Computed example of a mutant assay.
Amino acid sequence: MSVLPILFEDGEALVINKPAGLPIDRPRAGGTSLENYLDGLRLGFQRLPLAVHRLDQDTSGCLLLARHAKAHKRFAAAFEARQVEKVYLGIVAGPVAEDSGTIALNLSKISSAEKGWRMIPARAGKPAVTHWRVVERKDDLTLVEFRPETGRTHQIRVHALAGLGAALLGDPVYGSGEGARRTMLHAAALTVPREGKPPIAATAPLPADFAALGFAIDVPCPPPEN
């Protein structure tokens, strides 16, 4: 892949469709990362665009880039203030009994020599809230829409396991790692409000590996019920 798909573009922002497997930061051992594509994303601008937020290496979909430092500061502040609407789709590796709900579990980071680091639910952890609803059930798999209020590390992955009773399909840290070549999580839609300008709004089509498991829906997702 020589060029990353662009989902939104204007004078201060880009939203790209990040492929699964592409890390944001260059790995310590070397290899391809988002950095390899930034020069091609200048699109006439002198400076390289900067990633505003993070997606796990395995996660595909909407990634916001700022085209200059002032825009980066404003967008980062919008994320910090929880003004950004984020919609994810994930395949849960098991049945989900209810149709919708909200998971509010504080998260804390732990590490061990045996398993490395991971996030766990903990009363003393940082607040984390995720709204969810079932989109489709197929055999023993469940396609779930997640709308996180907060942006904690691995939030959706931990909330799926602890709140829904099963990890995301393919997740090697919080699940068995079986059933898929990657953790099946996709950043399907992103909306960033802007003062005096229309919001940044982008949607990323459902990836081929989701469709290969029998899931095929139109993105963007329907808005949550009031």
Rank of each mutant, 00 (worst) to 15 (best):
L41P: 04
R42T: 08
L43T: 10
L43S: 08
G44T: 05
R47S: 13
R47T: 12
L48F: 09
L48P: 05
A51T: 06
A51G: 02
A51L: 05
H53R: 06
H53N: 09
R54M: 11
R54W: 11
R54K: 11
D56T: 00
D56F: 02
Q57M: 13
Q57V: 14
T59F: 05
S60G: 00
G61R: 00
G61K: 03
G61A: 03
C62H: 02
L64N: 02
L65T: 07
A66N: 07
R67Q: 05
R67I: 04
R67L: 06
A69P: 06
A69Q: 14
K70S: 14
K70Q: 14
H72V: 12
H72T: 12
K73A: 14
R74W: 00
F75P: 00
A76G: 06
A76L: 07
A77I: 03
A77H: 06
A77T: 09
A78V: 08
A78L: 09
A78D: 10
A78R: 09
F79K: 05
F79L: 11
F79D: 02
E80Y: 02
A81F: 01
A81R: 13
Q83R: 15
Q83S: 12
Q83L: 15
E85D: 12
E85M: 07
E85A: 15
V87E: 05
V87T: 15
V87H: 04
Y88Q: 01
L89H: 03
L89Y: 06
I91L: 08
V92F: 02
V92E: 00
A93R: 06
A93L: 05
P95D: 13
P95S: 13
V96Y: 05
A97N: 11
A97W: 06
E98V: 09
E98K: 13
E98W: 09
E98F: 07
S100L: 13
S100G: 10
A104R: 15
L105Y: 11
N106L: 01
L107F: 07
L107R: 06
S108A: 15
S108T: 13
S108W: 12
S108Y: 12
K109F: 08
I110K: 12
S111Q: 13
S111H: 12
S111G: 09
S112I: 01
S112C: 08
S112K: 08
S112E: 06
E114Q: 14
K115W: 12
G116Q: 02
W117Q: 15
R118E: 08
R118K: 15
M119P: 02
I120P: 04
I120Y: 09
I120W: 10
P121D: 00
P121L: 00
P121Y: 04
A122L: 08
R123D: 13
R123E: 15
R123N: 12
A124I: 10
G125S: 03
G125M: 01
K126W: 04
